[in-house]
């Protein structure tokens, strides 16, 4: 008898909590469901973002869905975003493989009452509720070129190895890097830009080809997280450690052996765990209808700037990774 009562009790409770989850106004007990579709899954950089998302989810009361394509294609991303919209998550966001190709889906999400955001690599258009930017792309690109010039010297041939030839953020950085080189270090000559996708071994192959094609090459910039270790490996294999400078934008985990071995002196990055953590914070603010101010106090991150014109939260200035701090885990 008592068993059946408590069972009925449990059912009633379940029904109640179900009703609470369905009722749109009951924000108090609600845990938000926030989905994120990275450029691709299974590489250290986005694994770190996943870690940050989950950390943010725990701290700010959100369930995280992390789903994405296995190759960096926008078609794959579109499929995941569409299925997440159909699932009626509270918010869905991307690290976009193309700035414009997801605009239509952003509009669809907005129409369905779902918050659409982008983080790491942005989506254009008015239906994007929030953009979370790692660092000012100009500052980041300039910092990389400053590191390069510091190690190469005033003149010499240099080359870039990038990821996908259509990746928005990578092409933006390349543009700023070229500008900064032309303005501040006219002695540095960019002889080639190669694209190796998000693939370390391809970056190694491409760099080996560069090294034989340009025997006077003095420096290589890896523009994405897989290009730097790939380039470093090629330089190491060719026995050119210390003779050809390798720097660029990548994470400590990926580059650690090359920094400790001396092939790479420094790389530049932001912290992707913090970036993802900030993303969850920002999305939850929007879901809870709390407006941003130009300067925001974010738990564990400190002061974070918000730019209302572009609806952008900016994580902060870039971080230079050297032997001193390469033990950071991401």
């Amino acid at each position: 008898m008592s068993a059946s009562i408590s069972r009925r009790h449990a059912l009633a409770l379940a029904a109640l909590s179900g009703a609470a989850a369905l009722a749109p106004g009951s924000a108090e007990a609600k845990s938000w469901t926030i989905a994120f579709v990275p450029k691709l899954i299974g590489i250290p950089y986005f694994n770190a973002m996943k870690e940050g998302l989950e950390k943010g989810g725990k701290d700010f009361g959100a369930t995280i869905i992390y789903q994405g394509p296995t190759t960096a294609t926008v078609e794959g991303q579109a499929e995941f975003v569409q299925s997440l919209i159909n699932k009626h998550v509270d918010a869905v966001g991307v690290a976009a493989n193309s700035p414009t190709a997801l605009e239509a889906l952003a509009a669809k999400a907005a129409k369905a009452g779902i918050v659409f955001y982008s983080s790491d690599s942005q989506v254009d258009g008015p239906d994007v509720a929030l953009r979370v930017q790692q660092t000012d792309p100009k500052q980041l690109s300039y910092a990389v070129i400053d590191q390069l010039a510091e190690q190469v010297g005033k003149s010499g041939e240099v080359a870039f190895v990038s990821g996908g030839p259509t990746a928005t953020n990578l092409n933006t950085w390349i543009g700023y890097m070229k500008d900064h080189m032309a303005a501040e270090y006219p002695g540095l000559k960019l002889v080639s830009i190669q694209y190796a996708g998000e693939d370390i071994s391809k970056a190694t192959t491409v760099t080996s080809q560069l090294l034989s094609a340009y025997p006077h090459l003095k420096g290589i910039v890896g523009v994405n997280s897989t290009a730097v270790p790939g380039a470093a490996q090629a330089v190491l294999t060719a026995g050119l450690s210390g003779k050809v400078v390798v720097t660029g934008i990548t994470d400590p985990n990926t580059i650690r052996p090359y920094v400790n071995g001396g092939t790479v002196k420094s790389v530049v990055l932001w912290n992707p765990i913090d970036l993802a953590y900030l993303t969850v914070w920002g999305v939850v603010q929007i879901l809870e209808k709390k407006p941003f101010s130009p300067d925001n106090k974010v738990p564990n991150l400190g002061n974070v700037k918000y730019f209302p014109d572009s609806k952008t939260l900016l994580l902060g200035p870039p971080m230079v990774v050297t032997k001193a701090n390469v033990s950071l885990n991401f």
Binding site: T73, A101, T166
Partner: peptide, 16 residues
């Protein structure tokens, strides 16, 4: 169709 769906013409479309 793909260009119209995504509102973007991409040189790396339909790779799969």
């Amino acid at each position: 169709v793909s260009a119209a769906r995504l509102g973007t013409a991409r040189p790396d479309a339909s790779e799969t």
